[in-house]
Simulated assay, not measured.
Amino acid sequence: MLLWISGPFGGGKTQTAYEMHRRLPGSIVCDPEHVGFGLHRMLPPGLRGDFQDLAAWRQGVVEVLDLALTEHDGVVIAPMTVTDSGYFAETVGRLRGLGHDVHHFTLLAERGTVLRRLHERGLGHVLRYVAGKDAGLRRESWAVEQLDRCLERLREPEFAEHLWTDHTTVPKTADRIAVLAGLTLKPNNEGALRTRLRQAGVGTRHIRFD
Rank of each mutant, 00 (worst) to 15 (best):
M80S: 06
M80G: 03
M80D: 08
M80Q: 14
T81Q: 13
T81N: 12
T81M: 06
T81R: 06
T81V: 14
T81F: 10
V82D: 03
V82C: 08
V82P: 00
T83N: 11
T83I: 09
T83V: 11
T83P: 03
T83L: 10
T83R: 12
D84G: 01
D84M: 07
S85M: 07
S85A: 15
S85Q: 11
Y87V: 04
Y87G: 11
Y87M: 14
Y87K: 12
Y87F: 09
Y87A: 10
F88M: 08
F88H: 10
F88C: 02
A89Y: 05
A89H: 11
A89R: 09
A89P: 01
E90M: 07
E90L: 12
E90C: 01
T91H: 02
T91C: 00
T91G: 08
T91D: 02
T91P: 05
T91V: 15
V92S: 04
V92G: 00
V92D: 07
V92Y: 01
G93Q: 03
R94I: 14
R94K: 12
R94L: 09
L95D: 03
L95P: 00
L95F: 05
L95A: 05
L95N: 00
L95M: 02
L95H: 06
R96N: 04
R96W: 08
R96F: 03
R96E: 11
G97W: 07
G97S: 09
L98D: 07
L98Y: 10
L98E: 01
L98I: 08
L98T: 08
G99N: 07
G99A: 06
G99R: 01
G99E: 10
G99W: 01
G99V: 01
H100K: 00
H100C: 04
H100F: 03
D101Q: 13
D101I: 07
D101A: 15
D101K: 05
V102G: 11
V102E: 10
V102M: 05
V102W: 05
V102R: 06
H103W: 11
H103R: 15
H103S: 02
H103G: 04
H103D: 02
H103Y: 12
H103C: 02
H103K: 04
H103N: 09
H104I: 07
H104Y: 13
H104T: 03
H104D: 13
H104E: 01
H104N: 06
F105L: 02
F105T: 00
F105R: 00
F105W: 01
T106P: 07
T106E: 05
T106L: 04
T106A: 09
T106F: 02
L107E: 09
L107W: 06
L107A: 12
L107M: 13
L107K: 11
L107R: 05
L108K: 13
L108W: 11
L108H: 08
L108I: 15
A109Y: 04
A109P: 05
A109T: 14
A109V: 07
E110W: 09
E110Q: 13
E110A: 09
R111D: 02
R111N: 10
G112Q: 15
G112L: 14
G112D: 15
G112E: 15
G112R: 08
G112T: 15
T113A: 15
T113Y: 09
T113R: 12
T113V: 10
T113H: 14
T113S: 04
V114M: 01
V114T: 10
V114E: 11
V114P: 09
V114D: 14
V114Y: 14
